[in-house]
Design a protein around this nucleic acid. Structure first.
Lengths: 216, 216
DNA sequence: ACAGAACCGTACCGTACGGTACGATCAGAA
DNA sequence: TTCTGATCGTACCGTACGGTACGGTTCTGT
């Protein structure tokens, strides 16, 4: 046994991938234990042995997917205005691309559908293992920009949420609802540019007034 | 028969209200035909007679709820900057209040959960009957402000979506996921104020440069 | 008062799913 | 080779749901 690098064995990961495939293709109703066993050529007994019950399987799917999408951290080269802006645009593009991905949408639909049931931790799981990385990356990026005097804010979380809102707008919910035409990825680049532009209007520091503000 | 004012009879509306109650309380799984018949003191046969099948019931619930929440149109008094700003803040508060409502969240969760199945029109229905009114109101408001020279934009939809993003940020998805602590309504007022503030920074027209832009 | 429709409550049917049990099969260790 | 453990395929069980059928009851129009 090669010192399990993940929290799942390769076999289990293959099964989880099949499960994600079923979920993407047909939604939660298509993800049945019997169907997964048939699609993945495994037995239902193994599924219950590995993941406990169906909820455990769903949680494992989220953990597995999160372990695949590792949020990269932007290198710490010297930041001038151009590099900083480029990093923000990259972040915006990555964010839009992730949120509009098939697997992301399917998992979010799943967690949202389960959110009504009382003891459901899927939503929290999705936020913790999926969003935390993105938030960290953006937070570090904003902090770097602030320390270089390129932007100014009083509350980093508030600034980040504003940036998020400028980028995503209502696209995420519309995509989750399945509205046709929203997933045109063509516009994403333009949307990202415009969002960052607006973010600089709100939080950018003009060169002549650099270092006129302080933290809090 | 008193010339059905809605598209449903009073009896049917009462049943639909019960259905919404079940949905809010226990999610989609709690909304069974037998359960609804028991809770509403009606027969399953009547349910199928009135709404066709379960999907028809869900669609009827959305239509019924939309018919209750009539988006009011702001009166057309003379707009100065103060009134315009106040109307925008009102709109932001109303939007946050609607999106964080129990019934709205439950219906959105329902439609999102069904979005994966192919022939599901619930998402489109929710957008058409729920969002259209809000969009119209905001669009009219923005257009009035532009004609008074209080704001300037090239694309009204783009401006509206930016306003929407500034107000809602990622709150809607977080609430849909059931994250605890996001539904503190206390902050809503402050969030609305800040969003409108930022919107004016992006789209506001300084008094000295009024009427320097035109439509497109 | 009477007929017909609408409606209620309950019972019923077929299906599909979550979860369990069991014999057969395969892989590795002694 | 033989033993042991993990896994496969299948069969099985109980339950719950969507949808239908039916007898009894209430409402409505004439």
């Amino acid at each position: 046994m090669p010192e399990m690098q993940d929290e799942f064995t390769p076999r289990q990961r293959a099964v989880l991938d099949k499960a994600l495939g079923l979920l993407v293709e047909g939604g939660e109703r298509a993800l049945t234990t019997a169907g997964l066993a048939r699609a993945a050529n495994c037995s239902k007994e193994s599924l219950y042995k590995w993941f406990g019950d169906r909820d455990g399987l769903l949680a494992a799917m989220i953990a597995h997917q999160a372990s695949k999408v590792r949020a990269r951290i932007d290198g710490g080269e010297k930041l001038d205005h151009g590099r900083f802006r480029a990093h923000l645009v990259d972040f915006a593009n990555d964010l839009l691309q992730v949120l509009s991905g098939d697997v992301s949408l399917a998992l979010n639909r799943l967690a949202i559908g389960q959110a009504s049931r009382e003891g459901s931790r899927l939503g929290a799981l999705l936020i913790e293992r999926g969003r935390r990385g993105i938030d960290k990356r953006a937070g570090a990026l904003l902090e770097a920009g602030r320390q270089r005097g390129l932007i100014a804010y009083h509350d980093r979380d508030a600034a980040y949420h504003t940036l998020y809102g400028l980028i995503v707008r209502d696209l995420h919910v519309r995509m989750l609802l399945g509205e046709a035409g929203v997933r045109r990825l063509d516009n994403h680049a333009a949307l990202a540019e415009e969002a960052v532009e607006q973010f600089f209007v709100l939080f950018g520091v003009r060169k002549e007034e650099t270092a006129s503000r302080d933290r809090t």
